[in-house]
């Protein structure tokens, strides 16, 4: 599908440089909510960038796990943007963000229960029918778990994806963060994600808070996350991979270098050994 499966997030701080230099990158990912309600500069930039690059559309407010009904206004505006931009992939998070007219603007954790899974499967079906397109759901980083969870996180996401027909946006950093925060082996997680359901990979930086890791998206990808990415490439193959950097955003040059690192790792892992040695 792409010459280069590696992309970066489109952020306002890089708008002018991207428009001016058309950097060598496979694609851009945009946060859907940042473009749904604006018709000023952000929208104009997105339309210009779309002329030259594939776009992945990543949402943060679908609230697929909420027990509130969906916001019709949200769905309508999201669909309108999707129809206008025609992204190659649409995603949001396996979480909930609002209930009872309170929007947390945060990705809140779900209990891994059969009731929650059934609820989410029904809602994914509703959304996919409404959009007439598949969506991908992303595993989130979290800091607490519910005592009444009935399964592991990887069982929960795999079950939902298989039953609903949606895809998985696998965030390698989030797997690593959660593995430290909740003391499990990240390899177990990776090995239990169905190969054919992974549509995209996210990589980002985190911060060590002493007693737990915090998913801050404000620094370079950690060495152990790169290691895990290499193993994910072995398992899932040439999957579109994004570098997320949302706070303390560096220069575009630094961001592109981080993406090139992901590209190098993928190339190294996917090149047959004999060929790699010969070249």
């Amino acid at each position: 599908m792409f010459k280069n499966v590696h992309g970066v997030g489109l952020r306002p701080t890089h708008y002018n440089e991207i428009l001016k230099t058309s950097p060598d990158i496979g694609w851009f990912e945009v946060i859907a909510e940042n473009y749904m309600d604006t018709y000023g500069k952000p929208r104009r930039v997105l339309e210009s960038v779309r002329e030259n690059y594939p776009i992945a559309m990543h949402g943060v407010s679908l609230s697929i796990g909420s027990t509130d009904t969906f916001s019709k206004e949200y769905l309508d505006r999201w669909k309108l943007l999707i129809d206008q931009i025609d992204p190659f992939l649409i995603s949001d998070h396996l979480c909930w963000t609002h209930i009872k007219n309170h929007n947390s603007h945060d990705l809140l954790p779900l209990p891994f229960t059969r009731e929650a899974a059934k609820h989410i499967i029904e809602r994914i079906d509703f959304v996919q029918t409404f959009l007439k397109r598949d969506i991908s759901i992303e595993n989130i980083s979290s800091y607490v778990v519910f005592r009444h969870s009935e399964m592991t996180e990887w069982e929960f996401i795999a079950f939902i994806a298989k039953q609903s027909g949606c895809k998985i946006l696998l965030d390698i950093n989030n797997i690593f963060v959660n593995s430290v925060n909740f003391n499990f082996d990240p390899m177990t997680y990776l090995n239990n994600v169905p190969k054919h359901l992974v549509s995209q990979i996210h990589l980002a930086g985190h911060t060590d808070m002493g007693t737990f890791l915090f998913d801050t998206h404000d620094c370079h990808v950690a060495p152990k996350v790169w290691d895990l990415y290499a193993i994910a490439v072995d398992r899932f193959g040439s999957i579109p991979t994004l570098i997320e950097w949302d706070d303390q955003i560096p220069s575009l040059e630094v961001l592109l270098k981080e993406s090139k690192k992901a590209k190098f790792i993928m190339k190294t892992r996917l090149t047959p050994r004999s060929h790699a040695l010969a070249s």
């Binding site: 947390s104 603007h105 945060d106 800091y143 778990v145 005592r147 909740f182």
Partner: peptide, 22 residues
């Protein structure tokens, strides 16, 4: 209902921080 309840401040503090930033 939580394991690691001492980390709940990540959510409560984050809520105020996000709206304050907006």
């Amino acid at each position: 209902n939580l394991i690691y309840p001492e980390r709940f401040a990540v959510y409560s503090d984050g809520y105020v921080a996000r709206l304050h930033r907006a």
